[in-house]
Amino acid sequence: MAEINVRIENKQYVYGTSVLEHIEFDLASGEFMAIVGPSGCGKTTVLNMISGIEPSKSGSVILDGEPLNTQTSTRIGYIFQQPRLMPWLTVEQNLTLVKPSVDLDTISELLKSVGLEGKQDCYPRTLSGGMQRRVSIARAFLINPKLLLLDEPFNSLDAPTAARLRLLLMRFCQRHKCSVIFVTHDLQEAVYLADRILFLSQPPSRIVHQESVRIARPRTESGVDELSWQAALLAKYPNLLAGSVI
């Protein structure tokens, strides 16, 4: 049985522009799914609706057989395009903000596992961009999420830092066995990370194609399998990322 079911019908912005026509998908427990699509097709809107940031009057998000309630559901982690740490709080305070009951040993261990040992008392502005991402990853996993939402979290990072953070993320996802919805416009990144890829059309968006990635793990970013699989996918559906209907 699917753990998460998402259905969105005719989602419009407040000024009347229709952004999502019909999006419906299931996500199995522990599955890593990527959503790929052209810029402005509403990928982030899908995540915002699932997380409860945007009201989901035009659809439903069913988590564990129950409709998502923004007040009571507490097990969704979200790693945004920007780290979105509170600048007036230290690293430790940023973490305890989302889980006040957590003990300091857990925080120390978590920070150690993301490579930020001894940075508890630092303010975000004193950390590099990569370090801030690590804190936001730690924050997301601190609540032991059932569902993790990733909105192009490695977008503005340099290649080596992004690669390190991808590895870190995969390690955490496997340890916590959470389901993941990962939004990106980078097909290579999607092939490297995901079990399944959904392709969205131009807005008003709908799912135009989905493909299961049948490449054994562990994968490597420049691995032959991944690159040839990606090339084959693009050769088969040349207009996939431009959003043409297949």
Partner: peptide
């Protein structure tokens, strides 16, 4: 954006 973080983490 920061308020959205508060919303996501309930």
């Amino acid at each position: 954006d920061l308020l959205a973080v508060a919303k996501v983490y309930r």
